[in-house]
Each structure stands twice: as structure tokens, then as C-alpha cells.
């Protein structure tokens, strides 16, 4: 009886399972034709820019193998940059260059790679190796986020980000995703990143989950992960809530990074956000979805919705102990 939990107890806690997520949340609220808006990060970025939201600056786009020769010109502007597939899934195919020494580039892991290596990565991206369904893809070269010192002690390489689940435009749950040695600098929980629950009302972190286990400290650095205050939390939630307007998706994952200089930047959107956020917050999504259904009114502004959600869920997440 120790290694599993009864379905009745899960249901009582309002935990949403994979099948229920697919049927009741995604199929119900995310119309298929809207998927390209978020599956193509380039389009997402354009939509966000049109709406006046802060995003990492785009240095250039490479669309064909022939265009790879423009790579040196694109990256000439900055010593550090990120290359990612426009249709990448699950953080795959992202190459982070943190510095440059003459003709070689330093990857976030510290390993060096030459221009040819970067070009090979780009051509892999173009061939669709990292993309949903293996479709030919575009490679985006963009600003590398210098993440806020807040998470310095609780990250191992990579960029920690804040995932907010937005239901019908209301932020309902959030977590900070901390890269670990296991996750190879990626911020995806199933790859071994730590998910830390965030009190929606205050923006203060609670307990974390790592490989489906509850943790209090970062597994690599040993630093405590609880009680961190995310700066500009209200603005961040409002930004997340606004993503509903620009996409129309009713069940949305908004990934935001905190940049040292530029503040919260919207990194990408996800039409199929995972369920690990429930573990990180020790709370079920089903409960919160029901609460929003009862409060929901048409025509509220993103600010109002974010404020309403903060009110509702301020006590929901476990207080940092």
C-alpha cells in the first residue's frame, strides 16, 4: 500500500490524470486550429510582440540549409545566444552558447564547439530532428536570457523558468522549474528538472518535486528551494493571463523566464502543459478548474482575472514552512 495511491484518494484531491487532461482540458478548450500559434515559437513571438509583451529578442531565423552560411553574421551581434527549433517539443534541440573564443563557442555545459558544430546543429533542426512529427523546421537564433540571481543557487546550468497553467485566462497554478545535472540544463520535469510549487497569491516558493519525489533542497547544489520570493509576481501573472487573449487557448502553459536586466520575458507557450505542476504544488488541478468555472464571467480584463485568481488561490498552495 506504500508505493501507490488509491484512485479514490487522487480523485478526492482533484488530481487530473493524463486521460482526463487530454479529454476534458485539452480536447475541450484547445481547438486544433489554434495549435500552430503555440507550436510555432516564431508565431508565438510575433503575437506576443504585437500585444506588447516582453520576449527574448530574436537575432535571426534560418530557414534552409543554404542559409546556414548567414549564421556568422547573425551571431556577430552577441557573444552569447540560443538556437532553438521553431517547432521544438519538450525543450529538445535547444543549443545554448554562453561565450565565444575566436572561432569556437562555449556551450552551457562548458564544452566547446566550433562553427561547423553549430551549423550541424542548425541543419539537424532544419531537417526536423527535434520537431513535433519530424517536420522540416526553422531555426531561431535569439537572446540568451541572463537569469535572475534569485535562482542562481538552485540551478545547475540552463535557465530556470516559471510555468504558469492558465485556464480560460485565469492563472490557476504555477511552478518554478529548476534545471539539474540530471536534466542536462533543461527545465523539463520528466527530464529530471526540479519543479517547485509557487503560492499563486504571494509568488513565494514552496516545496519541490524531483523525479516524482518531494524535495526541500536542490539535488545538485543543496540550497533550500523554499521561501524564495519571485519579483514582480503580479505583473508575471498578468502576463500569463494575457496569453489567453493572444492565442484563444483555454488550457495553456505559459513559460516565463526572469531576466536580470529585462525582467520577466515570455519564453514560449504550451498547448499541452503537463501534470507535474500538481505534484510540485501538492494540489490537484481539477479542484481549481471547478473553482474558476464557478467564478468565471465574460469580458474581464487580464488584470482582473489575475487578481481574482490570486485572491482565490493565495491560501491554496502550501505556505512555505
Amino acid at each position: 500500500m506504500k508505493w501507490f495511491i488509491s484512485p479514490r484518494e487522487l480523485r478526492r484531491k482533484g488530481v487530473v490524470g493524463m486521460n482526463q487532461r487530454n479529454a476534458d482540458l485539452i480536447a475541450e478548450h484547445n481547438p486544433r486550429p489554434l495549435y500552430p500559434l503555440v507550436d510555432d515559437k516564431l508565431r508565438t513571438k510575433q503575437l506576443a510582440l504585437e500585444a506588447g509583451m516582453a520576449v527574448p529578442e530574436l537575432y535571426g531565423v534560418i530557414e534552409t540549409n543554404h542559409d546556414i552560411r548567414h549564421l556568422p553574421r547573425i551571431v556577430a551581434r552577441s557573444d552569447d545566444f540560443v538556437i532553438k527549433p521553431a517547432h521544438g517539443a519538450g525543450g529538445n534541440g535547444i543549443l545554448v552558447i554562453t561565450g565565444r573564443m575566436r572561432d569556437s563557442f562555449r556551450k552551457s555545459s562548458g564544452r566547446m564547439v566550433d562553427l561547423e558544430g553549430v551549423g550541424h546543429h542548425v541543419s539537424n533542426v532544419l531537417s526536423g530532428m527535434h520537431s513535433l512529427g519530424g517536420q522540416p523546421d526553422k531555426a531561431m537564433v535569439e537572446y540568451r536570457v541572463k537569469f535572475d540571481p534569485l535562482f542562481e543557487k538552485v540551478s545547475h546550468q540552463g535557465v530556470p523558468d516559471i510555468r504558469t497553467v492558465v485556464y480560460k485566462g485565469y492563472p490557476i497554478m504555477a511552478m518554478v522549474r529548476l534545471p539539474t545535472r540530471d536534466s542536462d540544463g533543461k527545465a523539463n520535469l520528466h527530464q529530471g528538472a526540479v519543479g517547485v510549487g509557487v503560492n499563486l497569491g504571494t509568488g513565494r516558493t514552496g516545496k519541490g518535486v524531483w523525479h516524482n519525489r518531494i524535495v526541500d533542497v536542490h539535488p545538485d547544489t543543496g540550497a533550500p528551494i523554499q521561501g524564495l520570493q519571485i519579483p514582480g509576481w503580479d505583473a508575471l501573472l498578468e502576463m500569463a493571463a494575457r496569453c489567453f487573449e493572444i492565442t484563444g487557448l483555454g488550457y495553456l502553459g505559459v513559460d516565463v523566464v526572469l531576466d536580470r536586466e529585462r525582467g520577466p520575458l515570455m519564453l514560449e507557450l504550451n498547448a499541452r502543459p503537463g501534470l507535474a505542476v500538481q505534484l510540485a504544488n501538492g494540489s490537484g488541478l481539477g479542484e481549481r478548474v471547478r473553482l474558476i468555472e464557478s467564478l468565471h464571467r465574460e469580458g474581464l480584463s487580464p488584470q482582473r482575472r489575475a487578481a481574482l485568481a490570486q485572491e482565490c488561490f493565495s491560501s491554496a498552495a502550501k505556505p512555505a514552512a
Binding site: 484512485p7 487522487l10 490524470g17 516524482n212 490537484g284
Partner: peptide, 17 residues
């Protein structure tokens, strides 16, 4: 039409216990 929990999720979410 089955939207209940998968058996593997009973293990995955055991932290809720």
C-alpha cells in the same frame, strides 16, 4: 472515453498520499 487515472499515475502521484 476513459478519462480516469492510468495505473502508472497511481504510482506517479503517490507523493499526494
Amino acid at each position: 472515453r476513459y478519462t480516469g487515472y492510468r495505473l502508472s499515475e497511481l504510482v506517479r502521484f503517490k507523493a499526494f498520499k
